[in-house]
C-alpha cells in the first residue's frame, strides 16, 4: 500500500489514484467482459444478501411502502416467536448431524471409489451422484415412507412381523426428523463429492511411490500420510458445499411431510422464511429471518475454514 510507504505525502497518493484510473481505463475490455455476469450477480445475489438487513428493520407487505420499525422484527424473532426458536434448533441440530456425516460420507466414498479399478470408478461415481442429478426424484421417498400399508417401509416391516400396525412416518413427530435426515443424506453426494473424487484422482503417483519407500504399508497410513495432506483445497470446497446443503435444507421436509409439519418437527429457518415470505407476505419479518440465516452460514463458513485450515496447512 502506498499509504504505508509514503504516509502523508499527498502528491504520491494523488499519483497512485491517477495510476489506478489509468489502469482501469487500460483494462476497460476486461471490465466489459465481466459486465454481463456481474450485473446479474449484483441483482440476484449481492442486492438480496445486502438488502436483507435494512428490510429486516421494516414492516413491509409488498403493497405499501416499507415502514421503519427498528429492531422490532428481531425482538419478535428471538423473544416472542417460539416457532422460530424451534426452527433455529432444528436447523442447528440438522446442520450438526447431516453436515459432518454427509461430509465424511463424501470423502470416504470418494476415497473408496478411487481404490477401485477404472471402469468401476465411473459406474460408482454415476450411481452415487444420480440422486443429485435427478433432483426432484426425492418425492419417491413419499412412496417408501407412506403412512398406509402401501408404503414400502410399512409393508415390509409388517410383513416380517417387526411392527404391528402402519407407522405414520411423515406425520408422527417422532419419526419426521429421522426420515428427513435419511433423505437428505441420500441426496448429499453432490458437487462436493465430485470435487473430492477428482482431487483424489489427480494426486501424482510418485507421492505414493515415495511414501512406499518411506515405509507406508497399508491403506490407512496411505490415506492419512499422503492422500489427506494433498487434498486440502478440494476438502475446503466440499466443506462449503456441505454447509450450504445442510443449512438450507427445507425443501425435503416441506415436500415430504405436510407443511407445516406436525409439531413443527421438520421446520427449519428456511421453511420459516418461506412461510412468512410467500404465504403471509410479511416481507420485513421474512428478511429478518433470512438475515439471521445468512449470518449463521457466514459464521459456519468462517469456522470451517479456520478448523480445516489448521489441519491442512
Amino acid at each position: 500500500m502506498a499509504a504505508k510507504a509514503n504516509a502523508g505525502v499527498l502528491h504520491i497518493e494523488d499519483d497512485k489514484f491517477r495510476y489506478t484510473l489509468r489502469e482501469m481505463k487500460r483494462s476497460s475490455g476486461l471490465y466489459l467482459m465481466m459486465t454481463p455476469f456481474f450485473i446479474l450477480f449484483a441483482i440476484f445475489t449481492f442486492v438480496p444478501v445486502v438488502m436483507s438487513l435494512p428490510i429486516g428493520f421494516t414492516n413491509f407487505n409488498m403493497v405499501q411502502a416499507p415502514h421503519f420499525i427498528g429492531l422490532n422484527n428481531f425482538y419478535a424473532l428471538f423473544l416472542e416467536d417460539e416457532v422460530f426458536l424451534k426452527a433455529v434448533q432444528n436447523t442447528l441440530i440438522f446442520a450438526v448431524v447431516t453436515g459432518p456425516i454427509s461430509y465424511i460420507l463424501c470423502f470416504l466414498l470418494a476415497w473408496l471409489i478411487n481404490e477401485m479399478p477404472g471402469a468401476l470408478k465411473t459406474v460408482f461415481t454415476f450411481i452415487f451422484y444420480a440422486p443429485s442429478l435427478t433432483g426432484n426424484i426425492f418425492t419417491t421417498w413419499q412412496l417408501i415412507f407412506s403412512g398406509d400399508t402401501y408404503g414400502i417401509a410399512n409393508a415390509y416391516l409388517m410383513n416380517l412381523g417387526i411392527t404391528k400396525g402402519a407407522i405414520q412416518w411423515l406425520t408422527d413427530a417422532n419419526y419426521i426428523f429421522g426420515v428427513v435426515i435419511v433423505v437428505q443424506l441420500w441426496m448429499s453426494l453432490g458437487a462436493g463429492f465430485l470435487s473430492l473424487r477428482a482431487g483424489l484422482q489427480g494426486i501424482p503417483r510418485d507421492r505414493y511411490e515415495a511414501a512406499a519407500v518411506e515405509g507406508v504399508k497399508n491403506r490407512m497410513q496411505e490415506l492419512l500420510m499422503v492422500t489427506v495432506p494433498a487434498m486440502g483445497p478440494q476438502m475446503l470446497f466440499a466443506a462449503v458445499m456441505q454447509i450450504v446443503a445442510s443449512f438450507t435444507a427445507g425443501d425435503v421436509g416441506r415436500t415430504l411431510t405436510a407443511f407445516p409439519s406436525t409439531d413443527y418437527a421438520a421446520h427449519t429457518i428456511m421453511t420459516h422464511a418461506f412461510d412468512y415470505g410467500t404465504i403471509r407476505y410479511e416481507m420485513g419479518y421474512a428478511s429478518a429471518i433470512c438475515f439471521v440465516l445468512f449470518g449463521v452460514m457466514l459464521i459456519a463458513n468462517w469456522g470451517i475454514k479456520k478448523l480445516l485450515g489448521r489441519y491442512l496447512d
Binding site: V47, P48, V49, M241, V244, G277, M283, A286, S287, L298
Partner: peptide
C-alpha cells in the same frame, strides 16, 4: 468465493422481493 454460500435456494425469498 464467499458467494459460493448463497445459492438460489437460500436467496429465494429475497430474490422474490427484487
Amino acid at each position: 468465493e464467499v458467494a459460493l454460500l448463497f445459492t438460489s435456494s437460500v436467496m429465494f425469498i429475497m430474490q422474490y422481493m427484487v
